[in-house]
């Protein structure tokens, strides 16, 4: 069963005013449990507005959202529960840290959920470990940490609520390549360990290509497509026209195709490109083990 489902979801900002703008236009989507989804779309495409519907921060102007088959707005008093089940990590989440220690900051969510001290402690330690924070760092002030560490504290704070769906809005913005890889690897490991459904919003096609099994593309308030990663990259040309950039490696292999060298596969990661080429060269006897 789909963990998240939208039905004719639309959202209009400032309806009836001169600034009226349809930000999400009739989106129908079903996201399966345990999926790792990349969400892409340029600024103003509606992707941020869409994800804010998934945990009830925004209420649709029309249409419905279902979490585990249940309409989240059916009973307004239950919306708090939805927010515990669908965790949202905003852009630059480190600006939202406010507690005295890393431990207290991560514990804030679980405490709010009314969990016992023991359970809260277990979760704080488990998620701190998941994002690579050491025991010693738990009792430091978050403000003594580096930017990358602070961001991981903020992410751990949402993970500690053990949501069924974890949405991250550009978790790697502003980080250097190493910091970026570290966070993405930790999210991947967390996904594997906990089986949490992950929705990763990113401008980096390279990152999305490396980690997501499915990609959701928003364009001009509409759902352009939601499909397996390889299928989405088959539409590289359309995606480029939207102002999004496909990975450099994909552009190279598309150029090869247009020059008559069709390798029969969509290439969107360096690792895959290498394997594909080595395979072909071996078959042709140009390369030996």
């Amino acid at each position: 069963m789909a963990v998240l489902k939208t039905e004719n979801l639309s959202y209009v900002y400032s309806p009836g005013s001169p600034f009226e703008k349809t930000a999400v236009d009739n989106v129908n989507i079903e996201i399966e449990k345990g999926e790792f989804v990349g969400i892409i779309g340029h600024t103003g495409s509606g992707k941020s507005t869409l994800i804010q519907h998934f945990n009830g921060l925004l209420k649709p102007t029309s249409g419905k959202i279902y979490l585990n088959g249940k309409d989240i707005w059916e009973d307004k008093t239950q919306i708090r529960q939805v927010r515990f089940k669908v965790g949202l990590v905003f852009q630059y989440p480190e600006y939202q840290i406010f507690e005295e220690t890393v431990y207290k900051d991560i514990a804030f969510g679980p405490k709010n959920m009314g969990l016992s001290k023991e359970e809260t402690d277990r979760r704080v330690r488990a998620t701190a470990e998941a994002v690579g924070l050491s025991e010693g760092e738990l009792f430091k002030s978050p403000f003594e940490l580096s930017g990358g560490q602070k961001r991981r504290v903020a992410i751990a704070g949402v993970m500690a609520m053990e949501p069924e769906v974890l949405i991250l809005d550009e978790p790697t913005a502003g980080l250097d390549p190493k910091g970026r890889d570290l966070i993405l690897e930790q999210i991947k490991k967390y996904h594997r360990t906990f089986g949490t459904t992950i929705l990763l919003v990113s401008h980096s096609m390279e990152d999305v290509a490396r980690y997501a099994s499915k990609i959701l593309v928003m364009n001009e308030s509409k759902l352009f497509c939601y499909d397996e990663t390889a299928k989405v990259f088959e539409r590289a040309e359309e995606i480029s026209q939207m102002g999004l950039s496909v990975p450099q490696i994909t552009r190279v292999f598309n150029e090869l195709k247009s020059r008559g060298i069709d390798l029969g596969e969509e290439v969107y990661t360096v690792k895959f490109a290498k394997e594909l080429l080595v395979d072909i060269l071996k078959k042709r006897g140009k390369l030996h083990d």
Binding site: K178, E206, Q248, V252, V270
Partner: peptide, 19 residues
């Protein structure tokens, strides 16, 4: 802790096979 462009990385990986 730095990267290289994807095309450079591909060449590097392929050269491990002595190409």
């Amino acid at each position: 802790g730095l990267d290289v462009p994807q095309v450079t990385e591909l060449v590097y990986e392929l050269n491990k096979y002595g190409l």
